[in-house]
Simulated assay, not measured.
Amino acid sequence: MTKTWNGSAGVCINDKGEVLLVRGYNSTKWAIPSGGIEEDETPEACCVREMMEETGYPVKILKKLKIKTTVVKGYDVCIHYFLVAVNGSPKPLN
């Protein structure tokens, strides 16, 4: 049986052309905010949730950019990428 992982990621670009990135705990690498799709969650809802959890910014989906499929450490990986825009004031992160 093949193991699978499905996720979503948000690409947020401000009016200066800067891309919103996050850095994981104990990591030196920067990445776009992303995470796994939960049971009964759409890729769009996952993207909005992950953006809030990882950046504190509420966002709205502007458009779907692409779906990337690959294999990572024995998992079939499918990531949905969305262009998003900030939609409100940021919330403090814990």
Rank of each mutant, 00 (worst) to 15 (best):
G74V: 08
G10R: 01
I32V: 14
W30S: 08
S27N: 02
T4C: 11
A9P: 01
E50H: 14
V84G: 01
V22R: 02
I13A: 05
A31I: 02
K73E: 13
T42Y: 03
A9D: 08
N6E: 15
K91P: 03
G74L: 05
V19C: 12
C12R: 09
G88M: 03
T55L: 06
G56T: 09
P90C: 05
D15F: 02
R23V: 02
G10V: 02
V84K: 08
V72C: 08
G10M: 05
A45I: 03
T42G: 09
G56F: 09
V84T: 10
E18Q: 11
N6M: 11
H80C: 01
L83E: 13
T2K: 15
V59M: 06
V11W: 11
W30I: 00
C47H: 04
I37N: 12
T28C: 06
K64R: 14
A31V: 01
M52N: 03
I61K: 06
V71R: 13
W30H: 09
C46L: 07
T70Y: 12
F82Y: 12
A45Q: 14
M51D: 03
K73T: 04
K73N: 14
W5G: 07
L20R: 09
E44T: 04
K66C: 14
D76N: 14
P43S: 13
C46I: 01
N94P: 13
T69D: 13
P33R: 07
E50G: 06
K66S: 13
V19L: 15
K60E: 14
N87C: 05
Y81K: 03
F82M: 04
L21H: 00
K63Y: 09
G36E: 15
V22C: 04
Y75Q: 04
S27Q: 12
R23M: 10
G17S: 05
M1D: 14
V86F: 02
C46N: 07
Y75H: 12
I32K: 10
P92N: 00
T42P: 07
F82D: 01
E38T: 00
E54M: 07
A45R: 13
D40K: 13
